[in-house]
Write a protein that binds this DNA or RNA. Structure first.
Lengths: 206, 206
DNA sequence: TAGATTGTTAATCGATTAACAATC
DNA sequence: TAGATTGTTAATCGATTAACAATC
């Protein structure tokens, strides 16, 4: 399901902002919204909002604006949020257990099915923990399509390659090393130290 | 210590990449490097590397390239990494405890001095945990300049305002809500759900 | 119909790349 | 000196903003 030729990273980075905003406005009971209102909430320009949406289709009505429900449906489809995602977490230490419980998973149809660790006997509340040798069969039997990695640096690349071999194509990686992404796989890195660097730099600039 | 008029976010986002790369090359024993080599490692263009550095000064030598040690010193200074940082973590649940232990803090002169939580009696390995009422005096007495927040959504804004009142100006926030940043404070948000959204979208585009 | 707001084209702005003089 | 590579200026490319016809 390839999208219109190329969507710039700048646009991609804004999509989650639009989506989160609209969800929270809908929760407050709003039914319609204009590009100007969206722009105000997010600090963008109204043109940019319309330009961004126009990468994907025509979601509004001339002279009216956007029906929030409809816009959310369209964005949810773009972000692949209009279906279930079953997830495993590799690494059942404190970080793995922490990211296994996220208040927003349920709202987004994301289900953490299990954690995996090389160590035996780890327990985590509300979620089974298995040893790594069970990973292959578990992925097959539970229709897993996405994984998070929260192991140590040494095992990370091997785990990515193993997940790839097992058919996983979406990985959110919390391990702060440079990994080689197999072709066709999408790996997104969450990098805390990089965040600190940027925080320090921006703070110094003020 | 205000930097040259305005450094674009695009440049800022690349600074940690340069820094991390150079640190790892130095560990491998490399002494010098050219803009072309840096560009190859990071997937940038050589012009961009030189253009980026030129925002801050002249770090290289004509006809030679960059002395890695010297370049690291310059970047470390830009990123405020050439001095100690003392940090507290607010929220001593699994996430707070996980982010309290990060292999790279030591290398970067970042010291996690304590965790704080509303609950009493929480223990964390290698790091004291105090109740919130001790926060003010602890920050004063331990020369704390940076905080991470890993609490629940409800208390996050109040904690930011409290930290501000206590003189903290650098915050890395793991709580996924929109916060109001007091003027002069720098808050950087780590947002896992946004990461998942972008992961899903990019994966769908392939 | 008049008013409002979209979707899109054109104009502007900023970031990246190319080119090259300076120089080690 | 000849070769290499920087720092910087100019050219190009892409993203944002402005303008406006289309239309609900």
């Amino acid at each position: 399901m390839k999208k219109s030729p190329e969507v710039s990273n700048a646009v991609i980075a804004r999509l989650p902002k639009y989506y989160s905003l609209l969800i929270s406005l809908r929760e407050k009971g709003m039914k319609k919204i204009s590009s100007t209102q969206i722009a105000e909430c997010l600090g963008y320009s109204p043109s940019q909002v319309r330009q961004d949406f126009s990468c994907f289709g025509e979601f509004g009505q001339h002279g009216y604006g956007y029906d929030i429900d409809n816009l959310i449906k369209n964005l949810a489809h773009l972000l692949d949020l209009d279906r279930n995602h079953n997830m495993v977490i590799i690494g059942a230490g404190k970080l793995g257990q922490a990211i296994a419980h996220h208040q927003l998973y349920k709202k987004n149809n994301i289900h953490v099915k299990a954690l995996f660790d090389i160590k035996e006997g780890i327990k985590s509340p509300d979620c089974p923990v298995y040893t790594m040798d069970k990973l292959g069969s578990f992925i097959k039997e539970n229709d897993i399509d996405v994984a998070m990695i929260a192991t140590d640096a040494d095992s990370c690349q091997k785990i990515i390659d193993d997940l790839y071999a097992l058919g996983i194509r979406k990985v959110l990686n919390f391990v702060e090393i440079d990994v080689i992404t197999p072709p066709g796989m999408t790996v997104l890195n969450i990098n805390v130290m990089e965040g600190l660097y940027i925080l320090f730099f921006k703070s110094l600039m003020k």
